[in-house]
Design a protein around this nucleic acid. Structure first.
Lengths: 212, 212
DNA sequence: GAGCTTGCACGTACGGCGTACGTCCGTCAA
DNA sequence: TTGACGGACGTACGCCGTACGTGCAAGCTC
């Protein structure tokens, strides 16, 4: 049974699997090697360091975004689709999201979504500077939303099934928070994401109408 | 020279200082203890674990937000001020931002900004559900923006003073990225932040006008 | 074939990490 | 005087990333 030879791709895949199964904190070169049934130092024949390996993880996850672009559709619909494609990866690789977000990559995998988005915005008639600004704004919103969704950012839903019995101090110091507790507790992530996305798109439409 | 006694507050302050001076990766119980001129294990008399200590860091940073609210101002101006107050901490504690963002806290320090924002939105006439949705959207945008500003998120400014000599492959595969490279390279963070903030506020105004 | 280079898997070892546990000492109440 | 107690500290364990050296198999040149 000649095991398939070690390779950068196999190592990155194992790392992603490990992160998704046991969380980003559980990842270590030793665990990855054990998962692959090899010695620790063998990994270093294919990957120069753990840091670069994590770059590979981020790149691999990013490259799995599935864009289904229709050049004939209205640009607002194309933006919607691209934003949702981005959001997909937070569902397929939730525990890896923090890894993706916490390192900037200079690779083609990171550039493709940018290229697509810029092309869409340019084709909608936006100037270069506007396209870049708008893209940055969308990315900020999407990244922030996904972080909340994955549960890593301060949800500011303070308690997560514990608010019900908020102590009296809470109600006195934070009247709004305490009276809106039920709403803060629950969050339909998809609906929230779509709400903000729609608002953003409408804002862009209004902005472009205003400035021409 | 009787050194001031060890305390949770002193430990947290030392941790913040260390993070800002040497980066979030450099933080370790041993380094903190060394900075304080103290044995490592002494820290554990005041802090149960490194994790909880980092919670303390996040809480301390968050509690340093300076809100200057004017109840008589228009709600759009109050939202602007609150968003900018939030952004301040990214400037005062840039390297700590990732720590703040990467752990959700259930403390009063985390709740205060929420309380303020909800009160502002409610006083502007928004219903509870709308106020929560709008707040979540703003937080997503602000968190995403600050992450980019601090340089931790994929800026999608691909190269950072290296794009100029983009190889020819790049121009062929990514025409938009390569032609807009100068714009992607530079980023006036304050202007970008304000641009998105204004767009968001206008979107909310339009949304509320539409739904009544 | 013989000899040699090359590539890759692997073991050992080092310095650093978080922290469980035990010790020691200064302070204060009885 | 004595006893309890809180807090500072040292030691030790099991992790971590990785520098470095060893050994083995495949492919090259004569």
């Amino acid at each position: 049974m000649p095991t398939e030879p070690l390779s950068r791709r196999r190592i990155v895949a194992a790392a992603i699997g490990l992160i998704e199964r046991e969380g980003a904190d559980a990842i270590s070169m030793r665990r990855i090697a054990a998962d692959l049934g090899v010695g620790v130092m063998s990994l270093y024949n294919h990957v120069p360091s753990k840091d670069v390996l994590l770059d590979g993880v981020a790149e691999a996850v990013l490259s799995k975004i599935e864009f289904t672009d229709d050049p004939d559709a209205h640009w607002t619909d194309r933006v919607r689709l691209q934003a949702r494609a981005f959001r997909q990866i937070a569902h397929h690789y939730p525990r890896s999201l923090m890894v993706v977000v916490s390192r900037q990559l200079h690779s083609a995998a990171g550039l493709l979504p940018v290229e697509r988005a810029l092309a869409t915005l340019r084709s909608a008639g936006f100037g270069g500077a506007d396209a870049v600004r708008i893209l940055r704004m969308f990315i900020a919103y999407i990244v922030g939303s996904l972080l909340r969704e994955v549960g890593v950012t301060p949800t500011f839903a303070p308690v997560h099934t514990r608010m019900i019995k908020a102590d009296s101090v809470d109600a006195a110091l934070f009247p709004e928070v305490s009276s809106l507790a039920p709403l803060l507790d629950e969050c339909d992530h998809e609906a929230e994401f779509e709400f903000g996305l729609e608002l953003l798109i409408q804002a862009i439409v209004a902005h472009s109408a205003r400035s021409r």
